[in-house]
């Protein structure tokens, strides 16, 4: 049995909305798990059920070998960082950190030591006496993390904690969270809708859609081997290109080109997925792209254009290549890195 076990967990809200469908998941001790998915997919609900803030309609959650379905949130030994931090506005930073410890009846000296240790770890020692309203976004974020760390919980829960920060700070805090988690070694679940955050933070990733875990795996597994159309479209930036096609006797015909000898016995309508970074320029390539727009990121160029059938298409090439707007490019798929999905079910077929 692993550290945190979810067995057939289902959440149905009183109004009948089914937020989470029979989800099962195991998380090992010390693992950093990320739930990623579009908003309203049930990822936060799942997290809140682990925290005890939502009732579990069906199924079991056990933490460290103990069933916690009916355990009060305060006794589950979990700590949570909220999207808006939920710092206590009327208490200074010290008391924000100390409050949970006080409620557990820990003596004053131990509290002081724990708070000071956590503050040092997070570099917030200088503003222990300040109120949260006097802190910047990044500092508040740290206090919120400090409040979680100081209790030394069995599991950290992060509910989109970075979405209120500006882009630069978000990247910085992302790194710090990862470093901190590795240093402290506490099992963590992190919920986000940002796939870059998910990829960078996760030991393992659960891509969630409509209350179902679509795919579970390491970030690279999921990137290299998406099992469904949804996962393929959600993970990777810029998004994977999708083209309509049809397979007959191992030959895939899409608008304007054909791929022979594909690794699939599937016959019928499919969607072909090609990542923008898995293309290269060549003479007489498969795909002809008429360039509409080039985004120069420095290290890379993102080339947007249209195929013959006016289908939008994106190609990513190294930044040192100059590509003119209006030109025609001939592209090949590198190393046969393409993905084929059943058009009716969205499942991967190659």
């Amino acid at each position: 049995m692993s550290f945190l076990d979810l067995k057939n967990v289902t959440k149905i809200y009183p109004n009948g909305t089914k937020a989470v469908h029979e989800t099962s998941l195991s998380i090992d001790e010390g693992e950093f798990m990320v739930f990623v998915g579009p908003s309203g997919c049930g990822k936060s609900t799942l997290l809140r059920m682990v925290a005890g803030l939502e009732d579990i309609t069906e199924g079991d959650i056990s933490l460290d070998g103990k069933l916690i379905n009916q355990v009060d949130p305060s006794e589950r030994d979990v700590a949570m960082v909220f999207q808006n931090y939920a710092l206590y506005p009327h208490m200074n930073v010290y008391n924000n950190l100390a409050y949970g410890l006080k409620n557990r009846g820990i003596d004053k000296e131990t509290i002081e030591q724990k708070v000071n240790d956590a503050a040092k770890l997070l570099q917030i020692s200088d503003f222990l006496q300040r109120k949260p309203s006097m802190l910047s976004g990044g500092q508040r974020q740290r206090v919120a993390m400090g409040r979680a760390i100081v209790r030394n919980p069995k599991i950290f829960l992060f509910d989109e904690p970075l979405s209120n920060l500006d882009a630069k700070l978000r990247i910085q805090m992302r790194l710090e969270i990862k470093k901190l988690q590795q240093k402290v070694g506490v099992t963590s679940i992190f919920v986000t809708h940002d796939q870059v955050e998910a990829m960078t933070l996760a030991d393992r990733l659960a891509v969630i859609n409509n209350g179902i875990i679509e795919q579970l795996g390491t970030p690279i597994e999921i990137y290299d081997n998406p099992k469904s159309l949804f996962v393929a479209g959600f993970i990777g930036s810029p998004q994977m290109n999708f083209l309509d096609g049809n397979i007959k006797n191992k030959t895939l015909s899409a608008e304007g080109f054909e791929i022979k000898d594909i690794q699939s016995d599937f016959n019928g309508d499919v969607i072909l997925g090609i990542r923008p970074e898995h293309l290269s320029q060549t003479e007489n390539g498969l795909i002809n792209l008429k360039v509409d727009l080039v985004e120069q990121l420095g290290s890379d160029n993102l080339v947007y254009g249209q195929l013959k059938d006016k289908k939008d298409f994106c190609y990513r090439c190294p930044g040192n290549q100059t590509i003119e707007k209006g030109s025609n490019l001939s592209l090949n798929i590198e190393n046969n890195k393409y993905y084929i999905f059943d058009k009716s079910t969205g499942k991967r077929v190659n």
């Binding site: 925290a51 005890g52 803030l53 949130p73 305060s74 979990v78 700590a79 949570m80 909220f82 999207q83 808006n84 939920a86 206590y88 009327h90 409050y99 949970g100 409620n103 557990r104 409040r147 209790r151």
Partner: peptide
């Protein structure tokens, strides 16, 4: 979130009223 956070910090209904 304030209530939820307080709950996780072990505050019962009475404490939430008095402390928050």
């Amino acid at each position: 979130e304030l209530l939820e956070s307080a709950k996780l910090d072990g505050a019962n209904s009475w404490r939430f009223f008095i402390d928050f």
